Simulated assay, not measured.
Amino acid sequence: MAFSSGSTGGPMANINVTPLVDVMLVLLIIFMMTAPMMSYPIDIDLPQRSLNPPQNLKDPPPPISLRIDASGQVYWNNSPTPISALRNMMETEVQRDVNNQPTLEIDVNEDADYGLLAKVLASAKNAQMQKIGFVKK
């Protein structure tokens, strides 16, 4: 505790914060050093370099436009489609040519239900679709 030499005559009730700041800086350095070790890896399938490129390249098929509006209605190429029929439609598109799949372009209204989007993405994954993109208009 520090003592006052002023006119008040009583002891000063201020705390010495220097040791507290030192401890906080040491903790900050410890957390900065351990934070990168606490991250989790994410598996990503990146394209690999090929020494022998494919000889017979085909034009990609036209993309599939899948739109989900705010009311939860799903549109497959601008035609209303029930959510239960999406997986069969996606599997049909994949089986036409497994190596040259169309791109699934998903346009979701910002007020749409997230659960519906999750079902659409699960259907696409189960149908083995490889080219999925999101469209922002």
Rank of each mutant, 00 (worst) to 15 (best):
M24A: 15
L25E: 11
L25R: 08
L25I: 05
L25A: 13
L25V: 07
V26P: 00
V26E: 15
V26T: 15
V26I: 15
V26S: 15
L27W: 08
L27E: 15
L27D: 15
L27K: 09
L28Y: 01
I29K: 08
I29H: 10
I29M: 15
I29D: 13
I29A: 15
I30Q: 09
I30A: 14
I30P: 05
I30F: 08
I30C: 09
I30H: 02
F31A: 09
F31R: 10
F31P: 02
M32S: 08
M32F: 06
M32W: 13
M33R: 07
M33C: 12
M33F: 11
M33H: 05
M33A: 14
M33P: 00
M33T: 11
T34E: 08
T34G: 04
A35M: 12
A35Y: 09
A35V: 02
P36R: 02
P36F: 05
P36K: 01
P36G: 01
M37C: 06
M37N: 11
M37I: 07
M38V: 02
M38Y: 04
M38T: 12
M38H: 06
S39L: 10
S39Y: 12
S39P: 02
Y40M: 13
Y40E: 15
Y40A: 13
Y40L: 14
Y40N: 14
Y40F: 14
Y40P: 05
P41Q: 13
P41C: 07
P41D: 10
P41N: 09
P41W: 00
I42Q: 11
I42V: 14
I42K: 14
I42H: 03
I42G: 04
I42N: 08
I42W: 04
D43Y: 07
D43E: 09
I44F: 10
I44G: 03
I44Q: 05
I44E: 11
I44S: 09
I44P: 01
D45C: 13
D45S: 11
D45P: 01
D45A: 13
L46H: 04
L46I: 03
L46A: 11
L46K: 10
L46N: 10
P47V: 04
P47D: 00
P47G: 05
P47S: 01
Q48D: 02
Q48E: 06
R49G: 06
R49L: 14
R49Y: 07
R49T: 15
R49I: 15
S50R: 13
S50E: 11
S50K: 11
L51Y: 00
N52M: 13
N52S: 09
N52L: 15
P53W: 01
P53G: 06
P53T: 04
P53D: 04
P54R: 03
P54Q: 02
P54S: 02
P54H: 01
Q55V: 07
Q55F: 06
Q55E: 13
N56D: 10
N56V: 03
N56L: 03
N56H: 03
L57D: 04
L57F: 04
L57M: 04
L57A: 05
L57V: 03
L57K: 05
K58V: 06
K58Y: 00
D59E: 08
D59L: 05
D59Q: 03
D59P: 03
D59M: 07
P60A: 07
P60Y: 04
P60D: 00
P60W: 01
P61T: 00
P61Q: 01
P61S: 02
